[in-house]
Amino acid sequence: MYLIDVKVRKLSPRECARLQRFSKEFIINPSQTQAYKLFGNTISINVLKEISKEIIKDKLILIF
């Protein structure tokens, strides 16, 4: 949910998919509940990549 002109609006399943970098052609489950579950449980590869880099960097610092 986010605020636009003092109104709160929930992201649509398509907007959630695009934030997770799913393609425009990705077919979304017709059930909004299932679609929100899918996108809510998805791990963004770019975020995971950056977290992994930080973990590796921290471990390398501890080693040396």
Score class of each variant (00 low, 15 high):
37 K>C: 00
27 I>A: 07
35 A>P: 06
61 I>F: 07
9 R>W: 03
35 A>G: 03
24 K>C: 02
11 L>N: 08
48 L>K: 12
26 F>I: 04
11 L>D: 04
34 Q>P: 04
11 L>R: 15
41 N>M: 09
60 L>I: 11
56 I>P: 03
44 S>V: 14
34 Q>Y: 03
23 S>N: 14
29 N>R: 14
44 S>W: 06
4 I>F: 06
59 K>G: 00
10 K>Y: 01
7 K>S: 00
35 A>W: 02
3 L>S: 11
38 L>H: 00
8 V>Q: 13
42 T>K: 06
21 R>T: 05
64 F>Y: 10
54 E>N: 14
37 K>G: 04
41 N>H: 13
39 F>D: 03
31 S>K: 13
61 I>T: 10
37 K>D: 06
55 I>R: 12
54 E>Y: 03
36 Y>S: 04
42 T>C: 10
48 L>S: 13
51 I>L: 13
2 Y>R: 15
6 V>D: 11
54 E>T: 09
50 E>M: 12
58 D>S: 15
57 K>S: 11
34 Q>D: 07
19 L>K: 14
53 K>W: 05
5 D>W: 02
19 L>C: 08
35 A>D: 03
48 L>E: 13
55 I>S: 05
26 F>R: 06
24 K>V: 06
38 L>E: 06
24 K>R: 12
10 K>S: 07
28 I>C: 01
9 R>Q: 09
50 E>T: 12
2 Y>T: 07
48 L>V: 08
37 K>I: 04
